[in-house]
Design a protein around this nucleic acid. Structure first.
Lengths: 343, 343
DNA sequence: TTGTAAGCGTTATCAT
DNA sequence: ATGATAACGCTTACAA
């Protein structure tokens, strides 16, 4: 890299085109307010000088950056990177940029990122994590456009994009119950997240509908990871009356559980039927294919960005809760296809 | 969101502390240049007024944003999101932010993102894609700090962080040859990328060392995806003298190929030994576990950010090529472990 | 429709 | 060690 060329500025364009900087600015921001002839002259000068507007001056002057912040627990996790992909796509379409705040599930880091918002380096924020405390969030919501996605919170009135995790958890569990399973185990996500509470809530509701009381030996808490699925399943397998089916709150945990079962010589789905959650890319590649609740991750990203734009454009915009549809995808791990085939 | 509070500015802090804005600015940017007593008085006023510096004014005044741009072909792809994770981590540590440019492998979009750099909205750029043409790149390199990572280019002198793909491709292939395989097939990545050319080059070198001439029936081009691996393998399986081993230029393609083989009743690794590339998270979970060349993706991200910082701090910094070490990971798909066990 | 000119809030130079 | 003040380059009343 050599030294930077001295920048051509608006005044240079103005001089070449024999107009004022105001007119150049108008051509750039509101072309219709300038007579065609003048406009063409200005555009030609811009071209000729290869003028690039100083975006920093513009941001400063307008106190607006056309940039938003995304706080994400773990960008290397497929489900989150898909959401970010959706956010970025919609942002780009609307001439917005995305600043990435990857917290690696470190709450301190998430709090640090909030200062980017406070210092107005961005016009708004999408939170893909539910770890910020109520009071901080409340304070921020009064001042900045914010959307929560995937996660959601009780007692905080804010725009949220999510799926109905209770319904999904219930559906997943009933799918197993309907096939005759009664000892259905559940590996939940971290219970400090509403998401996990609700998926478990759905599980409990489904069990209840089939007259099955909560049995704590059949419920263990994981952290969404493959490893935690593996370990928790090992736990279930030590029970003298081991479960014949499992609802795992993530596909990664479902895969971990299946591996653990296989390691003990237990066949899936024949001896253990499994339903997961998320429908990550590998769920269809894994063997057996994971029956799962598909989260519309990219769409969730799109939608949350659209919602954020509404807040940015209209500070009086009232918080909205958007619940996206999710879909159960039947593959092999739940045993349904096997049964159908041998019928 | 209610209306934004009117901002406290530096002059307010200055008045409360009975100093000039210059002193407040010094306390913020270079505390040691201010007498302790004055400094404390200023800090107290900042605290008291809950002053947040206007970052946009600062960026404008200093023509520096402490933000860098990352152009990535596909953020939803594990290998790239891991690199981005590494970039973000090192950036954060150095008080830098990351602006995400996800191109979805669309070259037009990549060219669009370059304007962010030209308009100095960022202090530098990390390219995770090798699609920008030589001339454009040359023009940009003269003006801005840029690092290319993972990919690399011939005939362009720029800082690059990568692995030795020739060596890796050779090692992977020799691993198969050493086990006695002679009909070793190769599914390459897109050949418009140096990465793919080199991995294939390594394959050819290895074959050559074993006295095996290039056989175009054993070489097919994929696009790194599972689907392309599946399709290309189907092609190989139609040969009357089908290959007994495969080197795939990505783990996803390796998995696709294995699925295709299984679908035809061909056992892996017994009847087809496979080596992949990347070591994505899922490669150890897949069955059989994928023998692969592990790319140090997170480290690659860290290193490229470190290198970019050097360019940012010193515009005269000479371009460097950093080649990271990669490692072969032996799992089941290559058949080595099976053989060892039955020995 | 176009021009004039006053900021935006910080930093950095030059005095003191 | 601190203060006064002129930029930085753009946008936007307001005037013409």
């Amino acid at each position: 890299m050599l030294g930077a060329k001295t920048m051509v500025k608006m005044i240079d364009v103005a001089k070449l085109a024999n107009v004022s900087t105001a007119t150049v600015s108008r051509v750039l921001r509101n072309p219709d307010s300038v007579k065609k002839k003048t406009r063409d002259k200005v555009l030609e000068s811009i071209e000729q000088l290869n003028y690039q507007p100083n975006v920093l001056a513009r941001h400063f002057r307008r106190s607006k950056t056309n940039t938003i912040l995304v706080i994400v627990p773990n960008i290397a996790n497929t489900i989150f990177s898909q959401m970010v992909q959706g956010i970025e796509a919609t942002a780009s379409q609307n001439n917005y940029r995305v600043l990435l705040g990857n917290s690696n599930r470190n709450v301190e880091k998430e709090y640090d990122f909030l200062n980017i918002l406070r210092q107005r380096q961005v016009d708004g924020m999408i939170l893909l994590s539910g770890k910020i405390d109520r009071d901080t969030l409340q304070e921020l919501l009064e001042q900045y456009p914010i959307v929560l996605a995937s996660e959601y919170l009780k007692d905080v009135e804010m725009s949220t994009v999510c799926i109905n995790n209770i319904k999904c958890g219930k559906e997943a569990t009933k799918h197993l119950l309907a096939q005759g399973h009664r000892r259905v185990a559940h590996i939940s996500g971290p219970m400090n997240s509403m998401l996990s509470v609700d998926r478990q809530g759905g599980y409990l509701e489904a069990m209840n509908e089939y007259g099955l009381k909560r049995d704590n030996r059949l419920i263990l808490e994981g952290d969404f990871s493959f490893e935690s699925g593996y370990e928790r399943m090992k736990g279930f397998l030590r029970l003298k009356d081991r479960p014949t089916a499992l609802f795992a709150a993530s596909d990664e945990m479902a895969m971990g559980a299946i591996k653990a079962a296989k390691a003990e010589g237990i066949a899936v789905p024949e001896e253990l039927a499994v339903v997961g959650f998320d429908d990550i890319r590998f769920s269809s590649i894994f063997e057996p294919g994971i029956t799962t609740v598909a989260q519309p991750a990219v769409e969730m990203g799109n939608t949350s960005m659209e919602l954020l734009l509404k807040h940015i454009k209209d500070p009086a915009f009232k918080p909205e809760l958007i619940m996206l549809e999710s879909e159960m995808i039947i593959r092999e791990s739940c045993g349904l296809k096997v049964k159908e085939e041998t019928r």
